[in-house]
């Protein structure tokens, strides 16, 4: 095995798990939106950044602390997302689906450009709401990072449970297959679509708030992350929610390990894995392609 000091190894694994948590949350939100709308939400990264900025502004101007922002910020971004779907995206369901993709892409430009124009590119720090940590013997575990990993796992599992095990989830699954037929049962699918897009955006915003104390709050935080998440999605496949979550965490850990072994490759390792997957299993690991 590699001859590495244990604290460094676990430290990098923890960093990897944190990154993985964000990959998982974002690819989960993408998958939820894609499942029902068949839209790749290119605005997902911008909505993530918007979530972080919401938390920052809520704290600065309304004195709302982190824990309040964790609820309020996803709510605000979710409502904005729903409004976007209802007012604009909906008009494009009848035309080729590249236009839906392009509309969300242009939304990303608008959000990111506006954040940059208003707040500059340098970014702001956000105070850690859970300072301190605990020495586990083999490594030091900061409380906040433990919280991020834990809450992400809980949220992913909860989302999965809602979709796989509840009545609402059965509506969602059925509407993914045959929206028209589900409507003839008296279920308001267009409303579900609006809510689902909002929920996906809210999930991105939640991840943004989680990220604020770890990374800085800055306008570009979402764009770069989103492209990595796309690679994660290509690797894991958007067919299964669990697939995207597992791929998210797994690739985060892999990235952490790479940073330890060969730091130069750490920013590209996920893309390399993607290229390998495409060569060896063109349909992706989950192997289910939705057209």
């Amino acid at each position: 095995m590699l001859d590495l000091p244990a604290p460094a190894l676990f430290g990098q694994l923890l960093l990897g798990a944190i990154n993985g948590a964000f990959y998982a949350l974002l690819s989960l939100g993408l998958a939820v939106i894609f499942g029902l709308l068949h839209v790749v939400n290119f605005a997902h990264g911008a909505q993530y950044a918007l979530g972080a900025f919401c938390a920052y502004l809520l704290l600065k101007f309304a004195g709302v602390p982190y824990w309040g922002a964790l609820i309020l910020s996803p709510l605000i971004v979710g409502l904005l997302g729903s409004a976007f779907e209802r007012l604009f995206l909906r008009r494009l369901y009848d035309v080729d689906n590249i236009y839906q993709l392009l509309l969300t892409f242009s939304l990303a430009l608008i959000i990111e450009g506006t954040l940059r124009a208003l707040f500059g590119s340098s970014g702001f720090p956000y105070e850690n709401p859970l300072p301190g940590g605990i020495n586990l013997g083999f490594m030091f575990m900061p409380y906040y990072r433990a919280w991020v990993v834990a809450v992400s796992i809980v949220l992913c599992v909860a989302t999965w449970l809602v979709i796989e095990k509840t009545k609402l989830g059965s509506y969602l699954r059925a509407a993914t297959e045959r929206p028209d037929l589900v409507r003839t049962f008296g279920i308001n699918v267009p409303l579900m679509v609006t809510v689902t897009y909002g929920a996906g955006a809210a999930l991105a915003a939640f991840a943004g708030v989680l990220a604020a104390p770890i990374y800085q709050v800055n306008p570009g935080m979402g764009a770069n992350l989103l492209i990595i998440v796309f690679a994660v999605v290509v690797i894991g496949g958007m067919g299964s929610l669990m697939g995207s979550v597992v791929a998210g965490f797994g690739l985060g850990l892999l990235e952490g390990l790479t940073k330890l072994v060969y730091p130069t490759a750490s920013s590209t390792v996920i893309f390399v894995v993607m290229a390998l997957v495409l060569l060896l299993r063109p349909a992706g690991l989950a192997g289910r392609e939705v057209h």
């Binding site: 409507r183 003839t184 008296g186």
Partner: peptide
């Protein structure tokens, strides 16, 4: 369609429309 359903009409399609998931 969802409003029409509330008026008491129900539709059973030719391909049955059983959901695989």
């Amino acid at each position: 369609p969802e409003k029409i359903a509330r008026l008491g009409a129900a539709y059973c399609p030719e391909e049955r429309g059983i959901f695989a998931s």
